[in-house]
């Protein structure tokens, strides 16, 4: 199969990724436990979970770097067990740890991947230059990779992963270990690739990143998917059909929370710094209760706003884990 046919888009109606009852066992350790999901064309799909949840294991199985112990993986309808070669032509992978060749320049690294995937000579040179320019590395294209920073290497890794114009891009913890500036640039690049039609499958343990980037998120805990939906739907599920209003009083007294909590239509009141989070069934009922309480207690409302649960709150509610586990980097730091 030549380069032209790689992108011909056969099996266009099949999901980009279809995983069915996937399990992966390392000896006695069950790293992935009967996971089932699909990734549709053109979406950014995130696998969100703490370190050790099985995210990298899943990505390795999906890309053919590891074999499943049970279950089935299809990439654009190609079975990864029976026909991995055809599937591999359609995707690129950016691993968590950049595994490019330090001995080669950025350009040589990108060109090498283009050569492996059969991109025609002139096109691969143009494409490699174009990608390195896009990632701001045009002037350093002939510098050996050993002289690059971590963020620059990650950018080269992305260029190398998309040089053959894959229809699907796997990103394993794309911003792990990057500084804020590089992480922001990288997210922008991911969005841009997605706008150009590339389906993106990423793993992350950064809740904010998943919230900002992903169309759908699967929450993975101990090798199992505990929830899978859009970020908004996950937040809605966390709010359990209720509403939350954030309010600040002047003066803010300890008894404000107690007084508000006794009112009808209020489910729960929790202190959040110098503000209170008031939960109830309907916004009108909650606001009416707050206004009535202020009038009766002689306090002044200095701030009032409806608030939606954050993805962090949704994560805590849906997984039963503390959000602190998501802040732990690999290696326990």
């Amino acid at each position: 199969m030549g380069y032209d046919t790689i992108n011909a888009g056969h099996a266009a109606e099949a999901p980009a990724v279809a995983v069915s009852e996937l399990s992966k066992r390392y000896g006695r350790l069950l790293a992935v436990d009967r996971v089932t999901f699909q990734v549709q064309h053109g979406e950014i799909f995130g696998l969100l979970g703490p370190n050790g949840a099985g995210k990298t294991t899943i990505i390795r199985v999906l890309t053919g770097l590891s074999r499943p112990s049970a279950g089935q993986v299809r990439v654009f309808a190609h079975d990864m067990e029976r026909n991995p070669k055809e599937a591999k032509k359609l995707f690129g992978l950016v691993p968590e740890i950049t595994n490019l060749y330090d001995e080669l320049s950025a350009l040589e690294n990108v060109l090498f991947m283009a050569q492996l995937f059969g991109v025609p000579p002139q096109e691969r040179l143009d494409r490699a230059h174009q990608l390195l320019d896009l990632f701001g590395l045009g002037s350093k294209s002939r510098v050996r990779l050993s002289h690059f920073s971590r963020g620059m290497k990650r950018a080269v890794a992305i260029a190398a992963a998309v040089v053959h114009r894959p229809r699907l891009l796997f990103l394993d913890e794309p911003t792990a270990g990057l500084d804020v500036v590089h992480a922001r640039t990288l997210r922008r690049l991911v969005r841009r690739l997605n706008q150009e039609g590339v389906t993106v499958f990423l793993t992350t343990h950064y809740l904010e990143e998943a919230d900002q980037l992903c169309d759908r998120i699967a929450l993975l805990v101990k090798g199992r998917i505990v929830a899978l939906d859009t970020p908004e739907a996950l937040k809605d599920r966390a709010s359990k059909g209720g509403v939350a209003v954030e309010v600040a009083f002047e003066p803010m007294l300890d008894q404000c929370a107690v007084g508000l909590g006794r009112r009808t239509g209020i489910r729960r009141v929790t202190a959040r710094g110098d503000r209170l989070r008031v939960e109830g069934d309907k916004v009108s009922e909650v606001v009416a209760a707050i206004v009535a309480y202020a009038a009766e207690s002689g306090t002044e409302i200095t701030h009032i706003a409806t608030v939606r649960p954050t993805l962090e709150e949704a994560f805590v509610q849906l997984t039963g884990l503390s959000s602190e586990v998501m802040k732990t980097e690999k290696g326990g730091s």
Binding site: L65, K88, K89, P95, N99, L100, L116, F117
Partner: peptide, 9 residues
Amino acid sequence: SLERLLLAP
């Protein structure tokens, strides 16, 4: 980086 080669078809 051997994995990089194994990603090729």
